[in-house]
């Protein structure tokens, strides 16, 4: 029973990783909290759903979701953040600006979906259950795990093994210096936002399939989980976000299974508060969360 819960948690955690890594990628490169990330995630779920509903195969819906979410994320960077980067008050401004973008995207999907909950047709993913060692794994869970692992690996390869990845990391370290050696920061940012949005879109499709409940507010709880995960993993750290997502997925599944039902959320966010207090840099963060006030 416990093992089954841990396995389910691991699967969910893999999907969280797709969401949180994209979220943290943007924080890592620009020090901005992109509060529209939940809305991008939701967009992925809706795009896949409407593709399937129009008669397209799921894989097409998945690809469309990834591409459209990626492009949406790029658009958010251009509209909400590009001007702000040059002003002084960018940290606070980015929170408000992306909050605004989130509201706009949510309202658009609310109109398109007529405020209804939409669901994938019953047989979009055939119900097949594999059993081994007394554990049950559904085909959907296998797909989720494989998709999460493959996508994260592609992203890691892109970021750490290609010249683009080096550019991203160069701009992260020092935008001015990177510009001097010929890196175009705007192009780098656009690419980063595309990856971030594509990851969120993929997560949206997988969550939409897993819980089969797609609505215009579905991004909000995931944004909050995203907060908790990046605090746990360390703001800005990609490996930290990966690890924290898996821990969070398992922790959440266990909390739902063993804690009084109403207390799960309170538990999660109290735990997050505690981490902020005890170790604000998280498991792998390097950013100092505390302020240098006087000597302390």
């Amino acid at each position: 029973m416990l093992l089954q819960q841990l396995l389910n948690g691991l699967v969910v955690g893999g999907v969280y990783a797709l969401f949180a890594v994209g979220f943290n990628l943007i924080f890592g490169i620009q020090r901005f909290l992109n509060l529209a990330h939940g809305a991008v995630f939701m967009t992925g779920a809706f795009v896949a759903y409407y593709t399937v509903e129009a008669g397209g195969p799921l894989i097409l819906g998945f690809l469309a979701a990834i591409i459209i979410s990626g492009l949406l994320s790029v658009l958010i960077e251009i509209v909400c953040f590009r001007r702000l980067r040059k002003s002084g008050d960018a940290e606070f401004g980015a929170i408000l600006s992306s909050m605004g973008a989130s509201l706009v995207i949510m309202t658009v999907w609310q109109w398109i979906s007529k405020t209804q909950v939409v669901r994938f047709p019953f047989d979009t993913v055939p119900v097949v259950i594999f059993r081994f060692w007394g554990l049950r794994v559904s085909l959907l869970q296998v797909i989720m795990m494989v998709a999460a692992v493959v996508i994260v690996m592609i992203m890691a390869w892109f970021l750490y093994r290609t010249s683009f990845g080096r550019q991203v990391r160069a701009v992260t370290d020092n935008e001015k210096a990177a510009t001097l050696v010929g890196v175009n920061p705007n192009r780098t940012y656009s690419l980063t936002y595309f990856i971030s949005g594509a990851l969120a879109g993929a997560a949206g499709v997988l969550v939409g399939l897993a819980f089969n409940n797609i609505n215009y507010m579905m991004g909000e709880p995931y944004l909050l989980f995203g907060f908790a995960i990046i605090i746990l993993g360390g703001l800005g750290s990609i490996p930290g976000a990966l690890l924290a997502s898996l821990i969070f997925g398992m922790g959440q599944t266990l909390a739902i299974a063993y804690l009084p039902s109403g207390l799960t959320t309170a538990f999660i966010f109290s735990a997050m508060f505690l981490i902020l207090l005890v170790k604000p840099t998280g498991l792998m963060g390097r950013e100092e969360a505390g302020i240098l006030r006087g000597r302390r």
Binding site: L33, F92, F269, P280, G290, I291
Partner: peptide, 23 residues
């Protein structure tokens, strides 16, 4: 706790607080 945090972390912590109150 807020006094020990800066900027973005204060925002996240207070959003968590709202969530705790709600639940």
């Amino acid at each position: 706790p807020l006094a020990r945090l800066r900027g973005v972390y204060q925002a996240i912590a207070t959003v968590a607080f709202i969530q705790i109150v709600l639940s």
